[in-house]
């Protein structure tokens, strides 16, 4: 379980998170939606301590990650797989090396076992046979899928997706959505997807929360989200330029 308690984070004069509270249950598939720049990715990076809050707590399975030593924090991170917005593949390494890096660092698996696991992960994301390619040789969709293969290589309990479909054509985006659902079922993981792609949100999540002005202002199932009369949520899911978001947002410098 991930618990975020009263999280505040500012960058210079810009206040991004303003007392954010969120609880994510084990096995859940949660989507965090919100406008571009509202702090979704910032919130996600707090889950594994990639960003340090100004105040507030992040509690993973009962442990406040800010009370841990660096070694303990790194141990906790091994329970997470994260798919970055830009895929963030190590461009000096081949695909196989990208996927196997965590295993080589943290597991006692032999070289043969690691190679087998790399092949398994690539097969799961439908990219068998590209072990020896460099990231520069891959398309945007392939990079995201290799990023996903890297994220699941260490059999994490939680998989975090930062804008998994951004920048992809609709067909590739849908393939990624299918993959998220399939991996969620096969691996029995807790999934958190940060996105503003509502097609993706409705397809992959069983709960949706909306981040607005640094706070979680809505939480509900996809059906509840579709039916909500919350004006801010309605404007966002309907993609209207005019509405309460554009007139009331106070997330400013």
């Amino acid at each position: 379980m991930i618990e975020v308690q009263n999280l505040y984070k500012s960058f210079g004069d810009k206040s991004v998170l303003r007392g954010t509270n969120l609880t994510i249950d084990k096995g859940e598939s949660l989507a965090i939606i919100g406008q571009s720049g509202c702090g979704k990715s910032v919130l996600l990076k707090h889950f594994i301590g990639l960003l340090q809050p100004d105040s507030g707590d992040v509690i993973i399975e009962g442990e406040n990650i800010w009370n841990l030593s660096q070694a303990q924090l790194y141990k906790i991170r091994q329970k997470f797989g994260i798919v970055f917005q830009s895929a963030a593949l190590f461009d000096s390494m081949m695909v196989a090396e990208n996927i196997s890096l965590g295993l080589r660092e943290h597991s006692s698996m032999s070289g043969g076992e690691i190679d087998k696991r790399v092949k398994e992960c690539l097969a799961m994301v439908n990219l068998s046979g590209i072990e020896n390619l460099k990231p520069a040789e891959l398309s945007g969709g392939m990079k995201k899928r290799v990023g996903l293969a890297r994220a699941i290589a260490m059999k994490p309990d939680y998989v975090l997706y930062d804008e998994p479909t951004t920048g992809l054509d609709p067909i590739s985006a849908d393939a990624i959505n299918d993959l998220i659902i399939r991996l969620n079922e096969q691996l029995d993981v807790t999934t958190v997807v940060v996105t503003h792609d509502m097609v993706s949100v409705y397809k992959v999540s069983d709960r949706i929360v909306m981040l607005h002005d640094g706070e979680i202002i809505f939480s509900g199932t996809p059906a509840e989200t579709r039916e909500t009369d919350n004006g801010i949520v309605r404007q966002f899911i309907e993609g209207r330029a005019e509405g309460p978001i554009t007139t009331t947002s106070t997330l400013t410098s």
Partner: peptide, 16 residues
């Protein structure tokens, strides 16, 4: 590596 989130990716894998 920093601006393309590769440093974050290393951190997320539990590697300093």
């Amino acid at each position: 590596m920093k601006v393309t989130e590769q440093i974050d990716a290393l951190e997320s894998l539990g590697i300093s």
